[in-house]
């Protein structure tokens, strides 16, 4: 990200220097803060609602529902073990959009899985888990909906179902790629 930003900023400023348009820099900075303020309300609303859902026990219910798929996704991992519990807690929290709760669980799961890896190479379970985390399966993209509302969309939430379809497809491709590559890759 540091390299990308350096290239973006250097090219942008160089172009502004020659073609004019340095005003755009300060205008955009003002706009960035205004944007945060405009979307903060909607985002906080969804966070508040999600907190109610979480405290009503949605997390553990989702975790139970994930038990079956987990066995298929991670055949080498004991489904009742601590690693599997941390993994399903992470996936459930990610699905509900609870990033702050998901990350520590994901790190814990990776730590536990890491104990079984030989010679410093990630196991199949670790790779699949990382790819699922990187694919970001989320049931309700709160920040996108809040931003759409702030931009004056007629129906901010109408991208929820298409997004769900796209993210499910992406996760399926990720898992499929893991299966195919684990045979080809070796250590």
């Amino acid at each position: 990200m540091n390299a990308v930003w350096a290239v973006l900023m250097a090219c942008g400023c160089a172009a502004a220097l020659f073609a004019g348009g340095g005003d755009a820099l300060t205008q955009a900075a003002t706009e960035a803060v205004a944007l945060c303020v405009r979307m903060a309300g909607g985002f906080a609303l969804f966070s508040g609602l999600m907190q109610i859902v979480e405290e009503a026990g949605a997390l553990s219910a989702l975790q139970r529902a994930l038990r079956g798929p987990m066995k298929r996704l991670f055949p080498g991992v004991d489904p009742d073990g601590e690693a599997a519990r941390a993994m399903s807690a992470n996936l459930a929290a990610n699905m509900l959009g609870l990033g702050n709760a998901a990350t520590p669980m994901g790190l814990r799961a990776m730590e536990l899985l890491g104990r079984e890896c030989r010679g410093g190479a990630a196991t199949d379970a670790m790779c699949t888990f990382m790819v699922l985390g990187a694919a970001g399966v989320q049931l309700f993209p709160a920040s996108v909906v809040a931003l759409r509302a702030a931009a004056g969309s007629a129906d901010p939430a109408d991208i929820v179902l298409p997004t769900l379809a796209a993210t499910a497809f992406s996760a399926a491709v990720g898992v499929g790629a893991c299966r195919a590559l684990s045979r080809l890759w070796g250590d």
Partner: peptide, 20 residues
């Protein structure tokens, strides 16, 4: 995640994640 796991090589995780 790689940092937490202690593993040094991520094997096919990066290409699979890019495909996703």
């Amino acid at each position: 995640y790689m940092g937490a796991s202690g593993a040094r090589r991520s094997r096919y995780a990066v290409p699979a994640a890019l495909l996703a």
